[in-house]
Amino acid sequence: MSSRFDVHIRRGQPITMGLLVFFSIIELSISAWLTARFNQHHNFPSSSVRDKTRFILFCSAWTILGAGIYMTLFLLSAGTSALTSVGSHALFLFMTWVFWLSAAASITAAYSGGLSCKGNHPPYCGQQNAQEGFAWILWVLSTFALLMIILRGVAATRRGDGLRGGLIA
């Protein structure tokens, strides 16, 4: 039974981590650009938005580095090494999930649910809306990845490997 799911894990893990890296690069670009503009012109809507944009910049860098490393290690070790164990993935993805939930919720709260770019709007309104949207996309992706790792953790525990077991049986 597990060999049937192993095929999906061999394909799905690199795809999921690749999507996390891809969308994080987009988010990093937006948040770095906004941070540079806010620092240069001091025209941020509030200090809260400025600080949360910086936190999103950190979350993006964290995700690019972590997901890139996990994707590379998984491809090199075929998911059987201790570095690519279920527990290791779960720890990274849980931290990433918390970061993106915090980032997306806090920037949404700072914008009072969202920005309207009609009429009198803050500077860089479109970029700020894109930043908020991509933060939520990254939270959804990390939620999906975390749920898959939890399911693999249950399967690894049932087969007796525990959380030290690999993603692939």
Rank of each mutant, 00 (worst) to 15 (best):
S106L: 10
S85G: 09
L91T: 12
W136N: 01
F74G: 05
D51P: 02
T84R: 01
R37K: 15
F38K: 01
V7K: 14
A82W: 11
S31D: 05
T143F: 10
G162P: 04
F44P: 00
I15W: 12
K52Q: 13
V21E: 06
A61K: 07
G126V: 03
D6K: 07
P122W: 08
I26V: 15
M95T: 09
L65R: 04
S102N: 04
A82N: 13
G66W: 14
T53Q: 06
G162T: 06
H8C: 12
G12Y: 10
Y111F: 08
S106K: 05
S31L: 05
W136G: 01
F55G: 03
F92T: 06
R54W: 07
G133Q: 03
S88R: 08
T53E: 06
S24M: 08
I168Y: 13
I107K: 09
I30P: 00
T80G: 09
L93F: 04
L20D: 06
F58H: 04
I137V: 15
L93K: 00
T108Y: 05
V98H: 00
C59K: 00
G160N: 05
G160Q: 02
A155W: 02
I30W: 00
I168F: 14
E27V: 05
T157M: 12
G166T: 07
L163Y: 11
S106M: 08
H42F: 14
I56D: 03
H8R: 14
G114S: 02
G113I: 05
P45S: 07
S46T: 14
T157Y: 12
A169T: 13
H121Y: 13
I25N: 04
L20Q: 13
F144C: 09
M71V: 10
V140L: 15
Y124F: 13
L146P: 00
T72K: 11
C59W: 02
A145Q: 07
M17R: 11
I69S: 11
G66C: 11
I15T: 14
D51R: 13
G165N: 06
I15G: 02
D161W: 11
I15M: 13
S24T: 05
C125V: 07
G165P: 00
S3A: 12
G12T: 07
S47T: 13
T53A: 05
S81Y: 10
S142Y: 09
S46E: 02
F22M: 12
